[in-house]
């Protein structure tokens, strides 16, 4: 079967169904790709522009990157963003691991469906609603802990993003491995430590990476809950844009894009490597 479909022309001359050969398919794909990526491509190009113009090319320069990195406000905003993203990621990932373990391995219990719904709700809720609700809640309880407000808000919406890959990994995991560990004299903690956790690690890393990039580019919720002095990078960029798009904004955006790309590809590569390692049957 397999060899006959892959080895050269079909002797019977039958046309095989390949959706990629539909008329217009290639053209549509190209238009879609250009539509998606031309703006981003231009943004990156003009971040290296040697002039103040964001539309006319004057030659290559790293001037705007140097300027952006030399800006104290940018540095402060970047540090804030990193602190928030780091703490939110760690907390959200730990919570997500426990949640996934209970929901995927805890057997049936009352309110399991409800717990799942509640956990996923921040993902489907319009962000502006969460933002306003969080702000009024913080105001009502007079929570005044500076950047801590941003950390708490970010942790909440990061949890579902961390949860999804971890749960997917757990569901694809063979429970006989854990039974085997117990059969071979591992107690429950050892089973978790030596078998479940290492096998779950690709999911955990994916979840953490996802949380990190979701947190680092959040705007709406941060705008609402961040008190003065707790500006994050996206908020700062927005502030700059209001005074006109400069190549400095382009440079900052390009850096953020690069960070996201690094995280997403790392997460993907780790996932793929470990996936290959588990296929043992």
């Amino acid at each position: 079967m397999r060899s006959s479909t892959t080895s050269g022309p079909n002797p019977a001359g039958e046309k095989q169904f390949v959706i990629g050969r539909f008329p217009g398919f290639a053209a549509t794909s190209w238009i879609f790709l250009l539509y998606l990526y031309i703006p981003i491509f231009l943004l990156i190009i003009f971040s290296f522009n040697a002039s103040h113009s964001a539309t006319i090319w004057h030659g290559f320069s790293l001037e705007w990157y140097l300027k952006a990195f030399g800006n104290d406000d940018v540095q402060r905003a970047a540090v804030n963003s990193l602190i928030v993203a780091f703490i939110a990621t760690v907390v959200a990932t730990v919570v997500a691991v426990f949640a996934a373990l209970i929901l995927a391995r805890g057997g049936r219990f009352r309110g399991r469906g409800l717990s799942y719904g509640i956990l996923m709700l921040p993902m489907t809720m319009p962000e502006i609603v969460t933002a306003v609700a969080t702000l009024s809640f913080f105001t009502a309880i007079k929570l005044d802990i500076g950047l801590g407000r941003v950390v708490i808000a970010h942790t909440v919406f990061c949890i579902p993003f961390a949860f999804l890959p971890i749960r997917a990994r757990l569901q694809g995991m063979d429970t006989t491995l854990e039974q085997a560990a117990q059969d071979l004299y591992a107690n429950e903690w050892q089973t978790f430590r030596y078998v479940t956790l290492p096998l779950l690690m690709p999911g955990i890393i994916s979840g953490a990476m996802l949380s990190f990039i979701i947190s680092i580019d959040d705007f709406i919720i941060t705008l609402m809950v961040a008190p003065a002095g707790s500006t994050t990078l996206p908020l700062y960029i927005y502030g700059m844009v209001r005074m006109g798009v400069t190549p400095e904004v382009n440079a900052l955006s390009t850096v953020m894009l690069a960070i996201s790309l690094v995280f997403v590809s790392t997460s993907y590569l780790i996932g793929r490597k470990k996936q290959a390692g588990t296929a043992n049957q």
């Binding site: 063979d174 006989t176 491995l177 059969d183 030596y194 290492p198 390692g277």
Partner: peptide, 26 residues
Amino acid sequence: VNTVFQHYALFPHMTVAENVGFPLKM
């Protein structure tokens, strides 16, 4: 009592020697 499982249930993230050593380590 130890079990040999139908699909072996070897730990995919450990080498063969680590697999065999696992119960001894425990």
